[in-house]
Design a protein around this nucleic acid. Sequence first.
DNA 1: TAAATTTGTTAGACTAGCCTAACTTTACTT
DNA 2: AAGTAAAGTTAGGCTAGTCTAACAAATTTA
Lengths: 228, 228
Amino acid sequence: MLSQTEENYLKSLFHLGDEAGTNELAVFLGVKPASVNDMLKKLKEKKLVNYEKYGKISLTGEGRKKAIEIVRKHRLWETFLYEKFAFTWDEVHEVAEQLEHIQSAKLVDKLDEFLNFPAYDPHGDVIPNAKGEMPEVHKKTLFEEEVGHNCTMVAVKDNSAPFLQYVTQVGLSINNKIKVLARHDYDQQMEIEVNGKVSSISPRFAKNIVIVCNDCAKKKKAGKGRNN
Amino acid sequence: MLSQTEENYLKSLFHLGDEAGTNELAVFLGVKPASVNDMLKKLKEKKLVNYEKYGKISLTGEGRKKAIEIVRKHRLWETFLYEKFAFTWDEVHEVAEQLEHIQSAKLVDKLDEFLNFPAYDPHGDVIPNAKGEMPEVHKKTLFEEEVGHNCTMVAVKDNSAPFLQYVTQVGLSINNKIKVLARHDYDQQMEIEVNGKVSSISPRFAKNIVIVCNDCAKKKKAGKGRNN
DNA sequence: TAAATTTGTTAGACTAGCCTAACTTTACTT
DNA sequence: AAGTAAAGTTAGGCTAGTCTAACAAATTTA
Ligand SMILES: [Mn+2]
Ligand SMILES: [Mn+2]
Ligand SMILES: [Mn+2]
Ligand SMILES: [Mn+2]
């Protein structure tokens, strides 16, 4: 069993990618490089990281697997807080940071099921499935989506009450399917269909909905913005 | 902010009551008396326990308040796991033992609301309310309840599938109100009403349902069985 | 290519929480 | 009232995880 600290190191390495250095990881975790160095020796000993003196750090297969489990739990809990407990977009992370360390396979399974196996968390990040699979995904705004395509809402960019009310009114919420019926050249107003309900939305509204296209081919690399 | 360890010491003192000794607490926590001694000095320093060398240990007002918060969280999470995630009676404790340390006032409030402000956890123990109030309560089996009285189901004694199926069929679940309509002298079969639905139940069934009478006067002291 | 800068490592120290072993106080028994 | 047993304390030591300060390697820059 890994300690919470060890779990956090693995998760951080996962977010930093395979070319991480000691200082970089130290900054990311908010500790000193000396502390990271100590921990790397322990994690190497446990076969969770590949690490040689003065070399770049990377996760082993086992380390990566562990890291993904934690990311999965983090994002499932964020989704839970957002969807069931009306936490806002910006409140979920801090609590998920704690909840991700709860040890119970059954709890994770039930949580996943309870949320109806969500694909994205409230920040629009992909939730790894129970097998640890994590499809690469190309996010864009609803405004950028092609007419005729089907897509999945993965996040909002605006978190203000009026906007969110509007979102609710249109029948939208995260992990919902949307079909783009039309975009009018005149004022760029769009027609969309959600759960059989057709709505007309403004370009401003459309630009604040983040989606993943279900009809576009997958491509693109993950960026380095906010993680989790 | 208290560490998880400190929280566990406070909670244990709460369960042991105000005449606890060093060894007793050590056994309860599964550590050595020397460790307890160290921690007591720290907790005294923080004004959370009353403690003098060779004297009995007790919680201060502040310590008790903290302890009750943790018990509240523990029991709310147990109820959550039981009611929403189909954990059994005996599975909830271990996970609640972890969840009780999650720090988020909002989460606790939402959890309470989500569960509809439950009064009892799946073991039939009283859940302290948001103010830290914890009414003393006299538990007995449904079989022992007086005819004509109203009571609240607080726990089951049998956790087998056939029994639980029967419980469901009768429309019963924890925190539900039950009215005892009759008990037949011939075979001690009972008539009860749950949510307007009348059922006839066997004495064996009734003996496996733990209730609190809503019509009886409150009395009795808390025992020292399984806690939490 | 040599100096300067950045990056990474090591040694030594600290705290929290635990331990064992030895000791002291209190409580119980005869 | 002694003597023994039980309960409680202390000293010293261990590990995990952190730190600072000094040092070493690698990289950048002149
Ligand atoms: Mn997050
Ligand atoms: Mn997230
Ligand atoms: Mn419990
Ligand atoms: Mn309980």
